[in-house]
């Protein structure tokens, strides 16, 4: 494993990296604020085309904000995002909508439209963004549902599906425009281990079959190590590690080890500990 550079090298504001043409996603010096509070403090990373990048981090680390910013649901206060080589962060809504047609997003809850059938959910992007005739759309919907193992469920309402089936249907909808980049928010959260393993298998299948570039936000470690080619670990809005899965397993970075070894946060007992927690300095790991 190559030794992880010192923390300052991860803070893009100090060392911005050049954008690589071979990357599906490049993030440079990304900062996101909610009001006066900065959530992401200058994030830099690349997702090579055809690879799966897993974003790990504890609650409140900023990983959901990062994902929402990557898909354009939050505007960064500064920095750049390149998706398939095109600037995504600092463009007009119309330009952004055009680029969004080339990406797919699967939400934690599935976010299927409750008033539409599964088939209508999958068909919606095709109806809205293409001139395909209804019979072709119908065939494509069947194809997409078949790809996620939901053949024959076109006429079911989302409320009639189990949690795992909802996630699969959401993935089918995300695939409907044949995206080059696919984003997942907590794909296996709230599922039993067997169903979660099925979702992991599906993500791996999508990557192999369609050479998709995939970004997954999760805190399910088993799932992360199974599906990832690379991983980044976010902590308090800063990337503390960016490495391959093997490198990550052997990381000695204290915060990464704490996360991977499931070590609880030390109790705040004294004034100095409390100040450390407030200022974001990494507290010592309890032995």
């Amino acid at each position: 494993m190559s030794p992880l550079p010192p923390k300052k090298d991860y803070i893009g504001a100090m060392t911005p990296m050049p954008v690589k043409a071979s990357c599906a996603i490049s993030v440079r010096n990304l900062r996101v604020k909610y009001g006066e509070r900065e959530i992401l403090h200058g994030v830099n990373f690349d997702v090579p085309a055809g690879e799966t990048m897993v974003i790990l981090g504890g609650s409140g680390s900023g990983k959901s904000t990062l994902l929402r910013t990557l898909v354009g649901l939050e505007r960064p206060s500064s920095g750049e995002i390149y998706i398939m080589g095109k600037e995504f962060a600092n463009i007009s809504e119309d330009e952004r909508d055009e680029l969004r047609k080339g990406i797919g997003m699967s939400f934690q809850s599935g976010a299927l439209f409750g008033s539409m059938t599964v088939g209508e959910n999958v068909a919606l992007p095709l109806q809205e963004h293409t001139d395909l005739d209804p019979s072709t759309i119908e065939i494509m919907v069947r194809l997409k549902l078949d790809q996620v193992g939901l053949s024959g469920f076109e006429n079911y309402m989302p409320a009639q599906l189990s949690g795992g089936m909802k996630k699969r249907a959401a993935i089918a909808r995300a695939l409907s425009m044949d995206p080059q980049v696919l984003f997942f928010d907590e794909p296996s959260a709230g599922l039993d281990p067997i169903i979660a393993a099925g979702i992991d298998e599906l993500i791996l299948k999508l990557k192999r079959a369609f050479k998709m570039s995939i970004v997954v936000v999760t805190h399910e470690l088993a799932s992360a190590f199974l599906i990832a080619d690379r991983m980044i670990v976010l902590d308090k809005g800063v990337i503390v590690a960016d490495a391959t899965t093997d490198e990550m397993k052997n990381s000695t970075q204290p915060r990464v080890r704490q996360f991977l070894d499931r070590v609880p946060e030390p109790e705040v007992t004294g004034e100095i500990d409390y100040l450390q927690m407030l200022t974001g300095d990494i507290p010592p790991i309890r032995q």
């Binding site: 055009e98 969004r100 939400f107 934690q108 409750g114």
Partner: peptide, 17 residues
């Protein structure tokens, strides 16, 4: 309800206004 269920966000990521 759509907002709570992230359906509005889903709509935006699908380039639907």
């Amino acid at each position: 309800t759509m907002k709570v269920n992230e359906e509005i966000d889903a709509m935006e990521t699908m380039a639907l206004e």
